[in-house]
Amino acid sequence: MTPQSATDIAIRVRRAGPLALLQDRGRFGVRHLGVTQGGPADLYSWAWANHLAGNPWGSASLEVTFGGLQLVAERDLEIAIAGADLGATLEGKPVPLWQRVHWPEGQTLAFGTPASGLRAYLSVHGGFAAPPAMGSVACVAREQLGGFDGYGRKLADDDQLRIFTPTTPATQGLTEAPGHARPDFREPPQLDLLPGAQIAEFTGRSLFDAFNAWWRVDDRADRMGVRLTGPRLQCQIRSLISEGINLGGVQVPPDGQPIVLLNDRQTIGGYPRLGSLSPLAASRLAQCLPGQEVRLVAHSSEAVLREYRAFLAGFNA
């Protein structure tokens, strides 16, 4: 997408809801400046929503958390919603997820409350248009970067949202995700973890617990990180000199309860880590509601790399 592409006002916000953020792939090449990565917390569902809406990899979608968002189409649109089932309706009728949908002018698309998963991705054919900040439109309010105004402002009632004029017809490409590609977010997930970092500094008992206990997703969970509660993990190191932290890093503060770091994490941190979740495991965790239980499964990078490359290849990433 070039900045020269024509844009139109296509959607009006009737009700902004608790949290709806514009997200492209994220902000890269600037992490050494303390700028966070941003991007979709659930990369997997974001990729599917864009793909089904006929958009190229990297297009900007709306990440709708919890629901509550209400939008009115200012003209006929082709859309796809993937990810969480937040009870989305068009003029009161349920909208099918994981497939392309026609959204007629004047009709209201309303998100309800989570039935399964936490974050839904709304992609519009053409892609949302916004002024990039440091190479990305990913909205990070804390850093005043991205979003529709470029300065991280949250969506507000009566905002008018622009989209790029599509360069390809909406009829091209896959219009529906196969059943096996649609995750069941109510199932307790097995999260692939690549051991690393300070894993050797944890006690044997703690390593046994880490990979054999059920971990409960705490309500202290957001786009910066997700806290897990369970057995207390003990590490011989209590804190480190601050160092870079990558997506999915599983850090363990002195209270022994791990925090998995997600897209909007701070760029450096000083707690020992067990390793990192795979990119798709971090995506899956981002769909867990507080109280849900998860397992951590140690994996070699070979298997995880094969899976991740196959995922990206499927979207021409």
Partner: peptide, 16 residues
């Protein structure tokens, strides 16, 4: 991305 810090350098690369 390259993230230098006090004692370390985090190197982030494209796994494709």
């Amino acid at each position: 991305d390259l993230v230098p810090s006090y004692t370390t350098l985090l190197v982030v690369f494209d796994p494709v």
